[in-house]
Write a protein that binds this DNA or RNA. Structure first.
Lengths: 211, 211, 211, 211
DNA sequence: CATGAATGAGCATTCATTCAT
DNA sequence: TATGAATGAATGCTCATTCAT
């Protein structure tokens, strides 16, 4: 995750490297603290402490506390969307694509649980300013999902009487609902994986028994 | 519910009485303001103003600001669960039961959009104290849904390879996801109702085309 | 201490009896609560509760919270001064008079410990308004003591190179100092009485051994 | 006590440092304001203004308002005890020791009248928390006095039928009583000094004429 | 007279942000 | 750049006092 793939740019440009490193440390710390305590309950000094910098230093890299949160969305969700796109491309079929989406999103809870929590939890605490930034990013994420659905509809694999956007939201929401209850009751990872499998089946085939 | 010893004085005077009329006004005002600005950004004085009472009056009915939020959950979700149970009982079939759940939950967004927003949004802002109160109520709500699923499985109407609790969470989550995006993009009610129909179908039959 | 010596004035004048009774109840309650918690930490509602009346009732008998405290001084210290005067008159000698003063003041801690505490403690919390009322009453009390000293000086029993007022303050202060430490460490009454005896001796004969 | 690594920069800049300069300014300001208005009537903002700092700055050095008061006791009474011990050691005789105690305690009223008022007045306003801190310090002060008395008894200079602790309390109380009335009636310093002399004589020799 | 629900001014405390070093 | 002491605006909550009943 860090950037050890730029072995000489250290002082070449305008104070990169060290800069980006500290900025990143602040963001990572913020993700961790926001996840634990929520945006409002988090003190700027707590982020600073977790990042190992002085309080004032945060203001060298971010406008203010809210900007830290927004930056998390901007920096990290962008990457998530990339991963999602890549993963979806690897799929053999649209059904496989859906299963990959499910696995990826719920798998995120294990790999980067804090980030997942920040995205899930803090998306809803947002002031209007935050909405302004978070919603477009969120929409892009949903659009990737909706794209898979639409492709399935075109190929005839998926039923065509459903709006792909609604289906995408439902898919995301269902995953989020499972994740939320899982997070609130801190169950073990194996249960989450099992839930993921069942959810994919449910989503694909429905709850009604096939004739 | 109290005061049956004054069958007509109802409109006589304002009767400073602790009969809950003022408490209710505060709760309603709080729902409205919390929905607009979120729990943390809401000032107690704003609730007071919206309720048409003095700041201090709020503390005659509630411990503190958080208690107002908790009380919303306690008072209102309890009623929601009642309505849900009643509605589910009226259903001819489990499939109808599912459709009623979908309609009810999304219908709530129209009738009491603010309440829905508070429940949806603030469930996740919670301090641990709030979780303590909100989670059990939420669980009860989910249990009613899970009960419908389980009954469907017993009757053979629903597939039996899925855990009813997971299915319940997925159902709720999908509805919540649709509601969230609808709320964030202030779409019109008719779209929401159409989404509800489609979602019910999706949930029941799955996204994959039937052979 | 109550007024059972007016067997028929009950409804004769203008609402006496009942009135005075309630006013007295409030004062007694206030003495008790002030003694326990101090003037500032005492809530008017606590006085009301202790007196068994409604909060608002207190304002029918007193201007405000401070007036309750002032009234305690006015009503109760006045009586104390009377008792002091009476006691002093009974004395055979000025030496006996001093011993009676000592016994009376420290004895007060047992009989009306709360009142003593209010006088001792709250005299010093006073706003300037309170000082205005308390100081004159206090001075009257000191004057009685100073009178005894002066009489002793006139009769030749007491040395004449000391200002009676200073001696009076010293006598009162020494008693107060003993009372304070006794109160702070809640020792038993017998110790207090022994201390009283020793103090009287000290005051009369000094700490230096007689040749 | 820290900063021995900058032997002359003392007046260089204001050195935001936590070197106690600001802490001291706050304490001094608090002594002054507490003395004038009492602990409860004093606003934190008043202390801040008097100290020439922002309100929030006070909370960088003290837990809360009460901690400011406690710190006054802790910081200043400790020093008083030191001075008292030193002064007592210088005494030629126990009688001289007593006279020094008297002079010192009443002399304090001139040099640091505000501090004396705070100690005298606020010792009695205390919440239990404050008592917890103030009482032990007070006791130490009394113990020094009691030590002088005890030494006088051992040497035969003082009568042995009196408990040294009681005598110590009486001595302190008498001084406090004189101080209180002097403070309440803002007499002039010369009178206080005369009172001190008379009080020492009274304490040593008693009020009764010697045969 | 008595009540106690309602009031709202007042205050301790917090914490995001700044800026001298 | 980095620091962290200092700032002071902002706000939750208390409680003496009022007044309609």
């Amino acid at each position: 995750m860090p950037q050890n793939e730029q072995p000489f740019t250290k002082k070449g440009g305008h104070k990169r490297g060290k800069d980006g490193e500290k900025r990143d440390r602040i963001l990572s710390a913020a993700i961790s603290v926001f996840a634990q305590k929520g945006f409002y309950a988090t003190r700027v000094s707590e982020i600073a402490k977790a990042a190992g910098v002085a309080d004032g230093t945060i203001y060298l890299y971010f406008e203010n506390k809210e900007d830290v949160l927004i930056s998390i969305f901007r920096d990290r969700i962008g990457k998530l969307v990339e991963v999602l796109k890549r993963e979806v491309k690897k799929a053999d079929s649209v059904e496989d694509g859906v299963r990959r989406i499910v696995d990826l999103q719920l798998g995120l809870l294990e790999g980067e649980r804090d980030l997942a929590e920040v995205i899930t939890v803090n998306l809803r605490q947002s002031s209007s300013l935050l909405k302004q930034y978070a919603v477009p990013l969120f929409r892009e994420y949903l659009d990737v999902i909706a794209g898979v659905i639409a492709r399935g509809q075109e190929s005839g694999a998926f039923r065509q009487d459903l709006n792909p956007k609604i289906v995408a939201r439902a898919l995301w929401g269902g995953l989020d609902g499972i994740a939320l209850t899982w997070a609130l009751t801190d169950a073990d990872p194996s249960k989450l994986r099992r839930a993921a499998q069942q959810y994919a089946t449910l989503f694909l085939e429905g709850v009604v028994t096939r004739p």
